[in-house]
């Protein structure tokens, strides 16, 4: 039995991924989370001195707070099982990754456990965010300074 035949058997045994259903679920769950975010944005604009540009910050903070409650009570796990990427891609998924790691390693103490493991899952997001921001901004700055494009 060579590699190809083996792969064929593995493919047959594995359950087929229901692509369309997963995409639909992700669309609905992600859409609902973003709609809640939009409602929060309206709330902060209406009752606090935030504009459309600045209201995103308290909105994100509030969503992470909601993610904390849902993670701690174990509801977020159920949402994630249903929604897939729909629950992972919004900022609540980032919050969930950080908070669940913090709770998980609480028993090892606050310095080594919580502090050391908090960004175990979410650290790559920060790393690649900073790295790509640096590269993109560097390229654009160089291009502007030699006069290819303008700001």
């Amino acid at each position: 039995m060579d590699q190809q035949q083996f792969q064929k058997i593995v493919d047959e045994k594995n359950p087929k991924v229901p692509y369309f259903l997963n995409i639909l679920k992700a669309f609905i769950v992600g859409g609902i989370i973003c709609t809640i975010g939009q409602l929060l944005t309206f709330f902060y604009m209406r009752f606090f001195p935030f504009t459309e540009g600045t209201a995103a910050n308290p909105t994100v903070a509030t969503l992470v707070f909601i993610a904390m409650i849902l993670t701690g009570t174990g509801i977020y796990k159920k949402i994630a099982q249903f929604g897939g990427a729909g629950s992972a891609v919004p900022v609540t998924g980032f919050g969930n990754a950080v908070i669940s790691a913090a709770i998980e390693h609480k028993s090892e103490g606050y310095v080594l456990g919580v502090g050391g493991n908090m960004f175990k899952l979410a650290g790559s997001v920060i790393l690649f965010g900073v790295l790509s921001a640096f590269v993109v901004a560097l390229i654009k700055t160089i291009l502007v300074s030699i006069g290819v494009i303008s700001w």
Binding site: F42, M45, R46, F50, T51, E52, G53, A55
Partner: peptide, 10 residues
């Protein structure tokens, strides 16, 4: 000052 911001509108 011209703006399309909803907050300024309110």
């Amino acid at each position: 000052l011209v703006t399309g911001d909803q907050k300024i509108m309110w």
